[in-house]
């Protein structure tokens, strides 16, 4: 079986700073990581490979330094890594990104065999759109299973798969035909630590590097800025509230005095809350 996993290298959002004057992201010193959501997809892919045999190819579109993340994925045990990198891709929005990735996956199918499953993460922590997965599925005409929390029966010969999918208010159990695109829900597994053998192999492996042409992209107008229907017009820092908090001290009072003062402050500002709470208290008492 062949599985393709799309991973993205992202700046660690916990460490991002915004330039106070220009409002641009200060990348200086901000480490990059594999989008944490993608690790769930990768681990799930590795488990399926370990069970059914075959190969896992990781794919990313990004700048040359995204190779680091691919190599990392190899350390975890992926078999092959493809880096899609070309200056034409700069400024891609989700539509252009999914076009490029879908084309690259088509090319991967030709060169390394057709994948039964393409995995993506649920979403990225920088783009945060959850759109690229569905976009790839549509372009490759793959059936789409988003927010998958569990992979059930996989019948390679019969070409079918059963999954549990997180939906609003419950879990859908779905059955469909291969090939599929799965976006994996977070928290579904724990990323393994690669063995020394995997780590050494990863350090030596050749990462396949494709430009737009190599990936079989002919229509450059569908790439990058030109291929992106959306345009970012303005980037700005969220404005804080202008009025400052009213502080109520605790230490100089008895708990009773303090409690009464705080409740009073709350009700004074939000009379509606007082009514709600009283109503609730009465219902509760009646009950």
């Amino acid at each position: 079986m062949h599985i393709v996993v799309c991973i993205k290298q992202v700046p660690d959002s916990a460490q991002i700073r915004v330039h106070p004057v220009t409002n641009t992201i200060m990348r200086q010193g901000v480490p990059t990581i594999i989008n944490p959501y993608d690790l769930f997809a990768l681990e799930e892919a590795l488990r399926l490979r370990d069970k059914f045999g075959g190969e896992v190819t990781v794919l990313t579109m990004g700048p040359p330094m995204a190779e680091d993340s691919l190599r990392r994925a190899l350390t975890y045990g992926a078999d092959r890594a493809v880096l899609l990198t070309d200056r034409f891709f700069a400024g891609s929005d989700t539509l252009a990104t999914s076009f490029a990735l879908a084309t690259a996956i088509a090319r991967i199918s030709e060169v390394y065999g057709k994948p039964e499953i393409v995995f993506t993460g649920k979403q990225t922590i920088d783009g945060d759109t959850a759109q690229v997965g569905p976009g790839i599925a549509k372009r490759l005409d793959l059936l789409q299973l988003t927010y998958v929390s569990k992979i059930g029966k996989l019948d390679l010969d019969g070409g079918s798969i059963e999954v549990e999918r997180r939906a609003e208010g419950g879990v859908q159990v779905l059955k469909t035909r291969l090939p599929v695109l799965i976006t994996m829900l977070e928290g579904t597994n724990d990323m393994r630590r690669g063995s020394m053998k995997d780590a050494l192999r990863a350090a030596r492996a050749e990462v396949v590097k494709w430009g737009a042409k190599d990936a079989g992209i002919e229509d450059m107008t569908k790439c990058g800025l030109r291929g992106s229907p959306t345009v970012v017009k303005r980037v700005f820092a969220p404005g804080g509230r202008t009025d400052k908090a009213e502080f109520i001290t605790f230490t100089d009072k008895t708990p009773i005095e303090f409690g009464d003062e705080l409740v009073e402050a709350i009700f004074k500002r939000q009379p509606a809350v007082e009514d709600d709470l009283i109503k609730h208290a009465h219902e509760f008492a009646a009950y």
Partner: peptide
Amino acid sequence: EIAHVGIVADALKVLPALTEAFRRRL
């Protein structure tokens, strides 16, 4: 920065006091 009312104190003490106050009041 976004709070309307702030209490700089140990939550383990504040929460019971607040719970009690609401209970009395309600």
